[in-house]
Simulated scan of single mutants.
Amino acid sequence: MTPTKNNFDYSIPQQVDRLRASPRLFDNALLDKLSRVHWSVPLYVYIPVIALLAVKSFQSFSAMVVIVSAALGYLLWTLTEYFGHRFPFHYKHPSKFGARIHFLVHGVHHDHPNDPLRLVMPVLLSAPIMLIALLVVRVLFGLPYGYPVLMGFMIGYLAYDMTHYYTHHAKPTTRLGQTLRRLHLMHHFRDPTRGFGVSAPWWDYVFGTQHVKQERERASQD
């Protein structure tokens, strides 16, 4: 397995109220309010965009081309999710400024993982990612070829956000749901240097960052 470096200053909160706490992040009231978001907001923001991309895609290409291109976009999202979570989200810069940025981006989530208003990306964070994705697909594929790719990318993003909220607040009854929840909570409470794929955990097996068998067995007994 690929060794991982634990440069994430991690400690497991001991009290339930701390797990659910929603600390103030900014002195500015508006910025602090924008740092919190209801889990349904990404659906309202991005489903209309996905619908528009779908219309443009099916107007320009056959159904097979759209499906294959969207699948490519989804695949690109899952890699973005994995590498974004593994490296930028879990890199703690030694400077005070770097530590502050790290805490704002992801550290607060590990300190208070059940904060219901900080489990999906605020639009202020997700919108720049989508704009960068648009620029990338435009350069790589051109338009309108990039439309179905971007559609698949956005579908993958919504799947990630909804899965992330689900793993923290749902009580899954299906085997898939239970597996996703167990793997992600192990990332929080067993080993934060493993299990970076939230909606796409297979990349952990590809890149050698999956939870080891002993940890999975021990977690299933808890």
Rank of each mutant, 00 (worst) to 15 (best):
S22F: 02
L143D: 11
R100D: 13
G208Y: 02
L185C: 07
G177Y: 11
A71L: 12
G107I: 05
Y205N: 06
P192F: 09
R182S: 15
H85E: 03
F8H: 14
R182C: 14
V66F: 04
L150P: 05
S126E: 11
M154N: 01
S11E: 12
W203H: 10
T163C: 09
S199P: 06
Y205V: 06
L72I: 14
V198T: 13
F189S: 02
A159W: 06
F87Q: 00
A63P: 03
H106E: 04
I129E: 09
T209Q: 05
P23Y: 11
Y166T: 03
R182M: 15
P122G: 09
R24I: 14
G146P: 10
V136T: 13
H102W: 14
H110F: 00
V108S: 07
Y166G: 00
L125F: 14
L131N: 01
D17H: 14
H85S: 09
V16F: 08
V137R: 10
L124N: 02
L143G: 07
L183I: 13
T179C: 04
H102G: 08
Y145G: 03
M130C: 11
L131R: 04
H187V: 11
G107H: 01
M64F: 13
S199F: 05
D161T: 13
M186P: 02
Q14N: 10
S40W: 12
Q221I: 03
G107N: 00
K213V: 12
A71Y: 03
Y82F: 13
Y147K: 04
V66P: 01
W202K: 01
I67M: 13
F26C: 05
Y91S: 07
V49H: 04
R118H: 07
N114S: 08
P88H: 10
N7G: 02
F97W: 13
G146Q: 10
T80K: 06
D161L: 12
R181L: 05
Y10I: 05
A21T: 10
S35G: 05
F153S: 04
L150A: 12
R100M: 15
I50F: 00
T173W: 04
W203C: 04
F153Y: 13
H112L: 02
H168K: 02
P148T: 13
H187L: 07
F87C: 00
T78K: 02
A127P: 11
L72D: 01
M64A: 14
Q178I: 11
W39A: 13
L180R: 07
V120P: 02
D111G: 05
P144V: 04
L135S: 13
F8A: 04
L76K: 00
L30C: 08
P192M: 06
I101H: 03
Q210T: 01
L25R: 12
A159K: 11
Q15G: 03
R18E: 15
R216Y: 09
V49G: 01
V212F: 04
F153E: 09
R36F: 15
V139Y: 15
P116F: 02
S220L: 10
H109N: 07
F196I: 06
P113I: 02
T4A: 14
D27V: 12
M151E: 03
R18W: 01
I155D: 00
R194F: 05
W39V: 08
G152E: 01
W203Q: 07
H106D: 00
G84M: 01
Y74M: 11
I12T: 06
